[in-house]
Every structure is written in structure tokens, then in C-alpha cells.
Amino acid sequence: MIVSKRRAIVTLAAGVVAASVLNPDKSKAEENSLQGSKYFVSRATARPKPKIGMLIFPGVTSLDLIGPQSVLAATSDIFLIWKNKNLLLSDSGLILKPDTTLEESPKNLDVLFVPGGPGQVEVMRDSDVLKFLADRGSRANYVTSVCTGALVLGAAGLLQGYKAGTHWAALSLLPLFGAKPVNERVVVDRNRLEHVH
């Protein structure tokens, strides 16, 4: 009898928690037409979350973006930043949607992050994106990249005088941006961090 009462109380409590977490504001859930959004779990916190700006672009390597984004999303406010909010295609065919434009991005980011991918060549030629990265990177607590994203940081002038790493095939290009190439998996120099895979 006691066990069945406990089970009923636990079941009721679980239902109440699930209802409040999975759908805290029904009207907001109905406004949001993103498929699967009703399954999003809201995470409440008493302190402000770090603001992480993640540049995405056509031809980004999805693994470079999704791995870090998945880990950081639980504890941070993530901004997927591009020039517009149109759908874009990753190098693996995954369709991504930016949620923040260059203009909408917070001025002060805790972390500025640039993934790699074959699309980085065009990004390195885009003066608007490079100007944005130089501006946000000048104030960010940390400036980070994965793989050839380091070349984009370099083109924005953010690796001048720093040790840096990138994909082995592009390592020799880093000195063109004033960086000191290091052939290691993870390179940390002050507030610059690069991960090479």
C-alpha cells in the first residue's frame, strides 16, 4: 500500500515537472512553428549565461559546429550568426539556419567561435564578416576556432602575434596572418584557443 502511494506521488510529481519544463508557456509554444520545438527543455538558471557567438556560413563543416554547440547549449546562450537568416548548406549536406545576423549579434560576447569547412575560403574574402569578427573578437573574453576556422580568425586580424593551430594542410598559411603555427591538437595562447581534428 505504501509503495503504491509513493509510486503514485512520484508519477504525479514527474507529470507536473514534465508539463512545466516541456511546455512552460503554451502560447509561446504555439507561436513557434519550428518542428520539434515543443520537445525543447527549458533550463532555468539564477545567474546570467555566457554569450557565445558561433559564426556559421555556407560550406561549414557541420561536425566543427555541432559538437561544440551541443556541449555548450546547456549552459550558455548560443547565437548562430551569419549575414542573414536564410537556410544554408553545410559541407555534409546538413541544412542549418542562422538565428542572428551580424547586426543583431550582442556587442560583447564571452566567446567568439569560428568553425572550419571548405566555405571558409569565401568567408575570408568577405569584408563585412571580417570586420564583424575583428570587432567582436577585440572585446570577447575568448576567441576560438576549430580546424580551418583559424584561417578566418587570421584573415580578421585576430591571430597576429599569437600561437595558432589549424588543419595540417593549411598550417603553413598561418604566418601570412602574423600567427605562429603550432602543430598540436589543441593550441592555447592567452585567450586564443584552436582545436585541430
Score class of each variant (00 low, 15 high):
K49M: 10
E104D: 13
T75F: 10
A19H: 05
L88S: 00
S20Y: 12
N108W: 06
A73R: 13
L88P: 05
F40T: 10
G59S: 00
A46L: 13
V114M: 09
N23A: 14
G67K: 02
I78G: 05
L112A: 02
V41N: 04
G15W: 01
S20F: 10
D128V: 01
T45Q: 11
E31I: 06
K49Y: 15
R43D: 06
P106K: 01
R125T: 06
P68Y: 05
L102F: 01
A19R: 03
L22G: 07
L87P: 01
S92E: 02
G59R: 03
S62T: 06
V21G: 05
S33C: 15
W82S: 08
L72G: 10
L65V: 11
L87A: 15
S27R: 08
V121H: 04
D135P: 06
L80G: 07
N84Q: 07
L55H: 04
V21F: 07
N32P: 04
D110Q: 11
Q69D: 15
A13M: 11
G67F: 07
S20I: 12
S127W: 07
A46Y: 06
G137N: 11
A74D: 04
S92W: 03
G116K: 05
S33A: 08
A29N: 14
Q69A: 15
V21D: 01
W82C: 06
Q120T: 10
K38E: 04
N23V: 09
L109V: 14
L88T: 12
P68I: 12
V60P: 04
G15Y: 14
M54K: 13
S76T: 15
S90P: 00
S105V: 06
L80E: 11
I66P: 02
K131V: 00
G53A: 11
S62M: 13
L109M: 15
K51A: 03
K28P: 00
F40N: 08
A13R: 04
R43Y: 11
M124Q: 05
A73P: 08
K131T: 09
N84F: 11
I81A: 07
S92P: 04
G67Q: 09
M124C: 11
V60A: 03
S42M: 12
A134M: 07
L94M: 05
L80V: 09
P50T: 14
L94I: 10
V41C: 11
E122A: 07
M54R: 04
T75V: 12
D25W: 13
L102I: 06
G137Q: 11
I78F: 13
D91K: 02
V21R: 02
Y39C: 01
N84R: 03
